[in-house]
């Protein structure tokens, strides 16, 4: 048994954020809520979604692994209106996931389940020396600047405690500098200077579904994966992206 009702807008954003990196996903559902961890096809990035039970208006579930094609879910959620309620319902007999959108009309979709067996993929528990809390819009703007000069970008913490988004091409260079006085910065927790370099296309995919006022928690070290977390309602979404090493 699995039946859960949530506002369509939040679930759409969760699916949008996930489907930028991953083609299919296995939702591990149980009495506490929905979880899913997946790596992108190249194993460069990992996405982890946690939608606790209290996010839902109604939630009843036993333990199931529900494997779905994210592109199909994304298309359906693309048709959802922000004032609609979404009920997710597992049809074990037909091996389908039903999606029922309700407002003025009741619209029913059902998608075939994939045999995406739960990978038991665990998110590695990495300790980071630095954490930046920044508005998503500001970070996305800095990535756009960096993109003008190269296809990768360095995320640096300077010795004097600034957060620097730095990109260098053959002849050109781009740099966005934030410090504790910047309005877009909500907090900088810094213990040491650090620098890691990342593929820009992945960072853009990771931040594509964000709204400009979303608060990103960006965890940084030297030549370490970057961890980027933000909340969608009560749900939490986390990305890990492996660095480029010189």
């Amino acid at each position: 048994m699995f039946k859960a009702t949530i506002n369509a807008k939040d679930f759409k954003k969760i699916i949008d954020a996930t489907s930028n990196l991953v083609d299919e996903i296995c939702f591990e559902v149980d009495e506490n809520g929905i979880k899913a961890n997946a790596m992108d096809p190249s194993h460069v990035a990992l996405v982890s979604v946690n939608i606790p039970k209290d996010t839902f208006e109604e939630y009843i579930s036993d333990v199931h692994d529900i494997g779905v094609d994210l592109e199909a879910l994304k298309k359906i959620m693309g048709r959802a209106k922000s004032n609609e309620k979404l009920t997710l319902e597992l049809d074990e007999e037909k091996n389908k996931l039903n999606l029922i959108l309700k407002n003025d009309a009741v619209r029913k979709f059902s998608v075939s389940l994939y045999d995406v067996s739960s990978t038991n993929l665990k998110v590695p528990d990495i300790e980071y020396p630095n954490e930046v809390m920044i508005k998503a819009g500001a970070f996305v703007e800095a990535l756009k600047d960096a993109e003008l000069v190269n296809d990768h970008v360095s995320l640096k913490i300077s010795e004097d405690g600034k957060f620097i988004i730095f990109s260098k091409g053959d002849i050109n260079q781009s740099e966005t500098i934030y410090d504790n006085n910047s309005e877009s910065i909500l907090d900088l927790k810094i213990t040491e200077s650090s620098k890691s370099t990342f593929n820009l296309a992945y960072l853009k995919d990771i931040t594509k579904a964000t709204s400009s006022d979303d608060i990103l928690h960006i965890y940084l070290g030297s030549d370490m994966p970057v961890k980027i977390e933000y909340n969608i309602g009560n749900a939490k979404i986390l990305f890990l992206l492996a660095p480029r090493i010189e």
């Binding site: 194993h43 460069v44 492996a242 660095p243 010189e246």
Partner: peptide, 12 residues
Amino acid sequence: NGKQMRIDEFFK
């Protein structure tokens, strides 16, 4: 010009 690491290389 740098090598792209895989995320699973950081799993322990």
